[in-house]
Design a binder for these strands. Structure first.
Lengths: 199, 199
DNA sequence: CGTAGATTGCACACCGCTGTGCAACGCTCC
DNA sequence: GGAGCGTTGCACAGCGGTGTGCAATCTACG
């Protein structure tokens, strides 16, 4: 039972705590320096450099984590081999609990590390675009925007809505699913059905 | 008439050119320094400081400009005293030509000047929220999200779509209007009508 | 030509953040 | 108690951006 006081905790412990806390802190202000991140994690700047040689490395690790997690959520949803609209609704339902955590990605895709992050999310973006394309072909999604744009807008909207929780609102998963389905051109009544059921 | 070579142009000229070019440059990378902004405007860093004592002043001026312009576009649209959905469609149609120009606002609302910019856009936000609320009351907009959130999501989506033009895509005003109407819960067929006609 | 005004070039101080080196310290486990 | 490991504190160099001061330069205008 790990009685850990101040010093000498397990390295893996510290590392993940730094990552967790950095994810949260950067979510509120993407421009925070190593010093701020460190103190948020209850640790000294010097210690953070022990785990991540560069601030860039820290951010990269965070981005990889996010990409992996979102990717696996997406894979799970796709595994159902259901209709595009059901898969999307399922995806958003699964994504919702982690969307707020990874809200940093919104700010991170711009500015400095933009290309790098974009590359990490490449596979996710492609899969989403394919999914939307499939939905368009089977007439369940609209064609008001090209698939690769539509998917991004519907995807980003979820993070934007989740980001509202930072401001104090508490919004439901179904509200987010509903909204992204509407963006995709699913009729309101149908979107309602798909958003209510989960799984 | 105005044979302007390198030096000694009219002050008002230089000032606005700095602003114009800064708007564009910061739109591509919100973190550009005074040096980069200056050279983009074909001017030396020192000159920029002659017009804007601080980088913050420059950004603030930009934000004010944006808020004013968007505000007046919104006022024009609202002046029609039409239904909420028509007013919104009209608003987006008018907004579209300037949305790409002011895409900086997307990045600017976060990070450092966030609160300040948020304050400037306060009136616009409120008006939009009222408009959406009115639409919800008259059953033309959905209620999947509270009015003040829904308006923001539908509003931000337009800028997000406009931002795509930075990546090379060229998307139409009607595509943007259509999408934001869908977000608001307007049925696809109706959204189509509203997006096609302008004015 | 001469003046006024805008711009330039350069030097400088300052600040905050980054990344490193190293000795000291505290905890844990043997 | 001693070895090992993670953490701390602190000092330091470097970098890049900010903002300022000032003399020099160019241009327009009269």
């Amino acid at each position: 039972m790990q009685n850990r006081s101040d010093r000498a905790r397990s390295t893996e412990d510290t590392r993940t705590r730094i990552l967790d806390v950095a994810l949260d802190a950067l979510g509120q202000n993407p421009d925070l320096g190593m010093s701020a991140i460190a103190s948020s994690a209850g640790v000294v700047r010097r210690t953070v450099y022990g785990y991540f040689p560069t601030r860039g490395d820290l951010v990269r690790t965070l981005a990889q984590r996010a990409a992996e997690e979102v990717g696996s959520v997406l894979d799970e949803a796709i595994a159902s081999h259901d209709s595009a609209e059901r898969v999307w609704a399922d995806f958003i339902a699964r994504l919702w609990p982690v969307a707020h955590r990874y809200r940093v990605m919104l700010s991170l895709r711009r500015g400095e590390h933009g290309d790098e992050i974009h590359a990490l999310l490449g596979p996710v973006d492609e899969t989403l675009a394919d999914l939307v394309r499939r939905g368009q072909d089977s007439r369940v999604f609209g064609e008001h925007l090209p698939a690769h744009v539509l998917s991004q807008v519907a995807f980003a909207a979820v993070f934007a809505i989740a980001d509202r929780n930072r401001v104090g609102e508490s919004l439901s998963a179904s509200a987010a699913a509903m909204t992204s389905l509407l963006i995709l051109g699913v009729p309101e009544s149908r979107a309602q059905e798909l958003s209510d059921i989960q799984g």
